[in-house]
Computed example of a mutant assay.
Amino acid sequence: MDVKQRNEGLEYARPIKVGDNVWLGGNVVVLPGVSIGNNSVIGAGSVVTKDIPDNVVAVGNPCTVVKSIIQEN
Rank of each mutant, 00 (worst) to 15 (best):
M1T: 05
D2T: 10
V3E: 13
V3M: 11
K4W: 13
Q5W: 12
R6E: 09
E8H: 05
E8W: 00
G9E: 15
G9F: 10
G9K: 10
L10A: 06
L10K: 14
L10S: 09
E11H: 09
Y12S: 08
A13L: 14
P15T: 14
P15F: 11
I16S: 02
K17N: 12
K17A: 13
V18E: 02
V18M: 00
G19K: 07
D20N: 15
D20F: 12
D20K: 15
D20T: 13
N21G: 02
N21D: 15
V22D: 01
W23I: 12
W23M: 15
W23P: 07
W23K: 07
W23T: 15
W23A: 13
L24S: 12
G25L: 06
G26L: 11
N27L: 11
V28K: 06
P32I: 05
P32V: 03
P32T: 00
P32A: 15
P32R: 09
S35H: 05
I36R: 01
I36E: 00
G37V: 06
G37S: 08
G37E: 06
N38K: 15
N39V: 06
V41D: 02
V41S: 02
I42Y: 13
I42Q: 07
A44W: 01
G45M: 07
S46T: 05
S46Y: 00
V48E: 00
V48K: 04
T49Q: 06
T49R: 10
T49G: 07
T49M: 10
K50D: 06
D51C: 01
D51Y: 02
P53K: 08
D54Q: 07
N55A: 06
N55F: 11
N55G: 05
V56T: 09
V56H: 12
V56M: 10
V56I: 07
G60S: 03
P62Q: 05
P62K: 07
P62I: 04
P62W: 03
T64F: 09
V66F: 04
K67G: 00
K67C: 04
S68D: 09
S68K: 10
I69P: 01
I69M: 04
I70Q: 14
E72V: 11
E72H: 11
N73H: 12
N73L: 13
N73V: 13
